[in-house]
Write a protein that binds this DNA or RNA. Sequence first.
DNA 1: GCATTAACACGTA
DNA 2: TACGTGTTAATGC
Length: 224
Amino acid sequence: MIPSEDLLRIAHWARLLPADEIERARRGVTLRTLSKGGYLCHRGDVLDAWTGVISGLLSLGSTTAGGKSATYAGLSPGMWFGEGTLLKNEPRRYEVIALRETRVAVMNRKTFDWLFENSVGFNHFLLRQFNERLGQFIALVEHDRTLDATARIARNLAWLLNPALTPSAGAHIEITQEELGLLSGLSRQAANRALKTLEEQCLIKLERSGVTVSDRGRLAAYGD
DNA sequence: GCATTAACACGTA
DNA sequence: TACGTGTTAATGC
């Protein structure tokens, strides 16, 4: 259980809810810290919770039988995820790993179900989030085969800062080039080259342990 | 050709 | 000192 002020700070969707629903929500949320490399869940786990990233960075991906790992998306502060698994009541299909020490907020299933059944504001948020994710998925199947390293980095960066999913995030994100490489399936060196290319085109500004995006629209459409 | 790993130099927290 | 970054060299598909 966490105070209402904390919930409002870490969960932008809470602002869509009336006071009584915020009260209900905060009672079902606990905080947890994952250390670097730690698993939030493995593939096949039944994780009975909905999760929000407070600080740090998570990667969502899978590992093949051969031990090869693939990352599908980064989860940055402000993002909430896992609703698909909860609504379908099935095991997690992916694994979620902390790329660095990460604070998460965990909402238990009972609370999630109650909000889903009773809160109009909560459902508006879920629908909006589904819509945004569907848009990303469509873009992925449309262009994935032809994307080069620079475009993959550009897309991952744009996704991490999607204002519909992380309205609290500005144009700046704290992420190392190595972490961006992990998310994009590239080595640190290749990620560095791709980022330099994007910086030369004035789409981003590189900083130590961070990137500031100057033109998110062009970044998201890079390579199209 | 483009990506990967390994290695090293450099600046900063 | 440890870490993030920028670069180069050797190697693989």
